[in-house]
Amino acid sequence: MKISGLASIPRHVLLAILTVASLAPLIFMVLTSVKSPDEYEQNPAGLPHTVTFSNYVHALVDLPTLTWALNSLLVTVISVAISTVAGAMAAYAISFGTFRGRTPLLMGSIAAIMVPPVVLVVPMFVTMVNLKLINNLGSVILFYSCLLIPFSIFFLYNFFRTVPSELVEAAVVDGAGPLRTLWSVVMPLAKPALVTVGVVNAIWAWNELLIALVFLQDERSRTLMAGLTLLQGRYVTNQPLVLAVATLSILPVAAFYLLSQRAFVRGLTAGIGK
């Protein structure tokens, strides 16, 4: 429907306000991160008079920011890989296999997606202590992997069931086992779905705070999010520095989003359309 010129003005105003509101805190963050603490004190809201990157140098050289980022990367990559493999196998079995408990597994997965992690974290903490995994990235990787499985199953199942069963049956007739069929027939078709699962899960793992905060107490074993909150209490009189690290933590996610935006939005809304 074509909009008449007049009516479109208030709409653009509304959208512009929302856009500014969405971006303003981020701009504030970046601008603050290039101010010196003294300048921030004098001029908290305006543009910096002198741009300094010393906060970033401080963040990267004197603080374990890079170690934390590396920890986050490891945790994210490994737990996404584990949960995607486990999820894909289960989703394949649900789609093309027959076994008792198929429907409960699917229902359970859907329900589990919504279970708040805070409910699980106290018992898991005790378990991780008993497994001697506290302060070890393994604890977070293990728990994240488990937490990401239900969504992986659910999402991949929804994709797998759109795969024509003739394709699968043809492969079986050719003598391929289920693992072969999954790997060389279904997986190549499911690439977009796998990317979506990977992206959504990776962003979740990168952003998670509560579990990382509780399981990883040793400074060097922290993830970027947990380390970041630590700085908040430690550098209270140097807020530009804290926001420099905040900017660094947000940067990879924002860059990822901007680069893969189309796939991202398509993935997020995959099921809502058709």
Partner: peptide, 14 residues
Amino acid sequence: TDPALVRSSAAAPW
């Protein structure tokens, strides 16, 4: 940024 949200809507109908 919890996954449930991203996930639930990301998901195809079931």
